Amino acid sequence: MKVLILSFHFQPDLSAGSFRNTALVEAIQKKLPRGSEITVMTTLPNRYSSFSVDAPKQETSSGLTIHRVALPSHKSGMLDQSKAFVIYARQVHKLVKGNDYDLVYASSSRLMTAALGAWVSQCKQVPLYLDIRDIFVDTIKDVLSRKLAWIIKPIFAFIERWTVKKASKVNLVSGGFLPYFQDRYPHQAFSLFTNGIDKAFIEASPLVEQSSARTIPEVIYAGNMGEGQGLHHIIPNLAKHFEGKLQFKLIGDGGRYKHLVEALQNAGCTNVELVDPVSREELIGFYQSADVLFLHLNDYDAFKKVLPSKVFEYAALGKPIWAGVGGFAAKFIQENIDNAAIFSPCNDKDAVDAFANLQLVTQPRTDFTASFARTEIMKGLADDILLVADPDLR
């Protein structure tokens, strides 16, 4: 069997899509019949302009070939991302020429990688399995100006309809996405394999309970700093309120990084440290040294449907979680994670009140890590994918 995997991000890049699809490929490799081939078409590490790591453009080993497309240096703006995707799509078009596949799998957060997968599957006349990590059409109205959203939303809505209807099956990483897709595509088959906890985080999980020893506790946020996270709306006021009481450390980069820096300067914050993106090994060390882990999504309706991958990393490390989220994510955290305080996004007063409910204690979350281990989730997703290609692979 020949399987084509399309994922804009893949190891060693830093992103939820990279971690998810790297683990998935490992799971599929273990389940394919002898002599099978997996081809991954991705990009050279490019998630953050401030973080780079070397990786070969082509890598081949034991039935796995990885093609990494080189992209020009770019920021997180929509125009830069669009240019980068066009380069990726052109290279995929060249790479698939003359090659046959039995299945196309595409994992996508911003829709276009999914659409590219639909186009390839149509050209090759083979089944398509989509892994949807965000609802781009639903997000457009919140993150773009009203005029621009009015112009481009119908275009992307058409692309979404065409793409989803081409798929043999669609996986959604958040249960909050299900009503949106079932309402629009009632005849499509959906599954719900969420993000999960990678082995490195499970191995770093605490074994015993331990109270914070710091006089001034350290709050850490790690990840993207874009419009979706809205850190520039919440951190400055929050940090100013807790000046002398909490130290904030923000690790990452993104499209709203400069806005965050300006907002911190305008607020006169002296208790916020900004750190460039780091490797996963370094990140785990930062997590382990923290007293509280901070999570925030901007106050947009579309984000009430998402379940951030960061939730799983944070929970595995046993730290108190201070989360400005609503909708499905808030419900998931409340139902599954102990010692987590939820507040309304972008509401610093609510955040201050929520913080008072946290116990500054690191403690094992054994049941959670067992339930959401990435390896087990990916085994299920791999089975689901391969059944689309060949129902006899049970």
Rank of each mutant, 00 (worst) to 15 (best):
M1V: 15
M1K: 12
V3F: 09
L4W: 01
L6A: 01
Q11I: 14
P12L: 09
S18E: 01
F19Q: 12
V25K: 07
E26I: 05
E26L: 10
Q29G: 08
I38F: 07
M41W: 00
T42S: 12
T43L: 02
L44K: 08
R47S: 15
Y48A: 08
S49D: 14
S52A: 14
D54L: 06
A55Q: 05
P56E: 10
E59V: 06
T60E: 15
S61R: 15
T65D: 03
I66C: 01
R68M: 00
A70F: 06
S73R: 15
L79H: 14
D80P: 05
S82R: 11
Y88S: 03
A89F: 08
V92T: 06
L95S: 05
V96N: 04
D100L: 05
D102Y: 07
A106Q: 01
S107L: 02
A115K: 14
W119C: 07
W119V: 14
W119N: 14
K124M: 02
Q125Y: 01
L128V: 02
Y129G: 03
L130S: 04
D131E: 12
I132P: 03
I132H: 06
I135V: 15
L144G: 02
K147D: 12
A149N: 02
I151C: 04
I151K: 06
K153I: 03
A157S: 13
I159R: 06
T163S: 05
K165F: 11
K165H: 13
K166C: 07
S168C: 01
L172Y: 07
S174E: 09
S174A: 10
G176Q: 04
P179G: 07
P179H: 04
Q182A: 10
Q182V: 14
T194D: 07
F201W: 12
L207A: 13
Q210S: 15
S211V: 15
R214K: 15
T215D: 13
P217N: 10
P217Y: 11
G228D: 02
G228V: 13
G230S: 05
P236N: 04
G244Y: 04
K245C: 06
F248L: 11
L250N: 09
G254E: 03
G254V: 06
E262K: 15
Q265H: 13
A267D: 06
C269D: 05
N271D: 13
N271W: 09
V275M: 13
P277L: 09
S279Q: 08
E281Y: 08
L283M: 06
L283P: 03
I284M: 11
G285S: 12
F286Q: 12
D291T: 04
H296G: 07
H296V: 10
L297P: 00
N298F: 09
D301E: 15
A302N: 09
K304F: 08
V306P: 02
K310W: 01
V311Q: 03
A316S: 13
K319L: 10
K319T: 07
P320G: 08
P320L: 04
F328I: 05
A329D: 00
A329V: 02
I333Q: 00
D338L: 13
N339A: 06
I342T: 03
S344Q: 13
N347L: 10
D348C: 10
L358G: 01
V361F: 03
V361T: 12
Q363I: 12
R365D: 00
T366G: 10
A370F: 01
S371L: 14
K379T: 14
L381Y: 02
L386W: 08
V388D: 06
D390W: 10
D390H: 09
D392P: 05
L393S: 11
